[in-house]
């Protein structure tokens, strides 16, 4: 299981970040949340840690380095490119959806305004990626067998 694996949340809006954290707490999930506010910070963070996050939740509209620029950077990195990146945004622009999948996003969720629905989205993302295997390079301790 991946339950203890950290989730990296890249989100510049502090209210949205609080909502994600609260949703995870309300769902009694034990994942550690690392919250960073833009892509540049996240690239620096990922370059230094030994335990990689098991998924990255990525906002698109952020200062300094946008979500799409971040996606492009990570997917061009041989070590980091295996981390699943899920876009979590308010943008319903088809162009953003297309570009995200083009750049290797493995899910594109628009943030519901309603808190209960927002919780459902977060829950579904985490259940899905817990059902899925993680890339081996990300798992450090708890191998399945």
């Amino acid at each position: 299981m991946n339950e203890l694996k950290p989730i990296l949340l890249i989100e510049d809006d502090s209210v949205d970040a609080m909502t994600v954290k609260r949703a995870i707490r309300d769902l009694h999930l034990t994942n550690q949340i690392i919250h960073l506010t833009n892509g540049e910070e996240a690239v620096k963070y990922l370059a230094h840690i030994s335990e990689k996050p098991f998924v990255i939740l990525l906002d698109l509209n952020m200062p300094r380095m946008t979500g799409l620029e971040f996606l492009k950077t990570i997917k061009a990195n041989e070590i980091l490119k295996t981390i699943p990146i899920i876009v979590l945004t308010t943008s319903k622009e088809r162009q953003d959806v297309m570009e995200s999948f083009d750049l290797g996003a493995v899910g594109y969720m628009t943030k519901p305004v309603d808190y209960t629905k927002f919780t459902e989205v977060i829950n579904t993302i985490i259940i899905y990626w817990n059902l899925s295997e993680a890339p081996k390079s990300v798992i450090t301790a708890n191998d399945k067998i």
Binding site: K75, K81, T82, P84, G104, V106, G107, Y128, W129, L131, S132, E133, P135, K136, S137
Partner: peptide
């Protein structure tokens, strides 16, 4: 499994 994620699978389910 590693190869799958390198090729950007959108989930890897046993």
């Amino acid at each position: 499994r590693i190869r799958g994620f390198q090729l950007n699978v959108a989930g890897y389910i046993i």
